[in-house]
């Protein structure tokens, strides 16, 4: 029997008249690494934000460790969110805080750690992402790649059991991208973290994914291992992973 960590059951979401998700169903097992691919604007970030209820579905259910998060009250929801780390597409560091304060924010506001413990944990996490010594810099002083790494350090500061990555390597140089890939792999292998990553960087997807899922027209179009997806025989999947302008997918 597989231990299911995240269970997405037939969720739909519209913004105004625009139906972004139209019946998405997906299970993620504990310790598994699932990568969601799909065209820009197809709803990958929207889907990811459903997993810690930054967005609520119009219909359907999301279960984290068998608990339905759609109906939860604030306190319960916060308890679940503490188990989930999220790396945002834009890193979303707080501009007014230093790197160290950003990384330690979740710990500080959880009111359980002393200043000294926080600064030790922050130091460890920054070392993991190769940014020791950047503690007192402000987000505005950092390059895009550095921000992503600070964002990653922040998302793992509370040792979450689930990690959500929104385009962790998009816009980074190949070397920094690979460093982030390695970090994600490490987290899974050493800490058995369950992860869901959204990307359209196929190099990264093949490297980090145990399973690749393609989102298309608000639904899961394909679900398989990196080996399977390369020979899927699905023309939509083929067009996307090989990056061709012409094919069944219409570029909007």
């Amino acid at each position: 029997m597989m231990d299911v960590s995240i269970k997405i059951e037939n969720i739909s979401k519209s913004f105004g008249k625009k139906k972004v998700l139209n019946g998405v169903t997906l299970n993620v097992n504990r310790g598994e690494s699932v990568v969601i691919i799909g065209q820009s604007g197809c709803g990958k970030s929207v889907l990811l934000k459903h997993l810690n209820r930054l967005i609520r579905p119009d219909s359907g259910h999301i279960y984290i460790n068998d608990q339905d998060i759609a109906k939860m009250q604030t306190e319960e929801l916060f308890a679940i969110r503490r188990k989930i780390g999220m790396l945002f597409q834009s890193a979303a560091l707080l501009d007014s805080l230093t790197v160290a304060q950003n990384v330690g924010l979740g710990l500080k506001e959880g009111w359980k750690y002393s200043e000294k413990e926080i600064s030790e944990i922050v130091g460890d996490k920054l070392e993991m992402v190769g940014l020791s010594g950047a503690e007192n810099m402000y987000p505005s002083d950092l390059s895009g790649g550095m921000r992503k790494r600070v964002g990653l350090a922040r998302s793992i500061s509370t040792n979450p059991e689930i990690l959500l990555y929104d385009e962790p390597t998009t816009g980074l140089d190949p070397i920094t991208s690979d460093l982030i890939n390695d970090l994600m792999i490490n987290l899974r292998e050493k800490l058995n973290v369950t992860s869901v990553a959204v990307t359209h960087d196929m190099t990264s997807a093949y490297k980090i994914a145990g399973r690749i899922v393609m989102l298309y027209n608000g639904k899961i179009e394909y679900d398989g291992t990196p080996g399977q997806i390369k020979n899927s025989g699905n023309s939509i999947v083929d067009q996307f992973i090989n990056g061709r302008a012409s094919g069944p997918i219409q570029v909007q």
């Binding site: 969110r81 945002f88 979303a92 707080l94 501009d95 924010l105 506001e109």
Partner: peptide, 22 residues
């Protein structure tokens, strides 16, 4: 507003920090 549109408010939520409190 700037924090909202750059996902900083979402980031607080994701860390189980209430933006209303913080």
């Amino acid at each position: 507003g700037a924090m909202k549109v750059t996902e900083q408010v979402d980031a607080l939520e994701s860390m189980a920090i209430s933006p209303i409190r913080y």
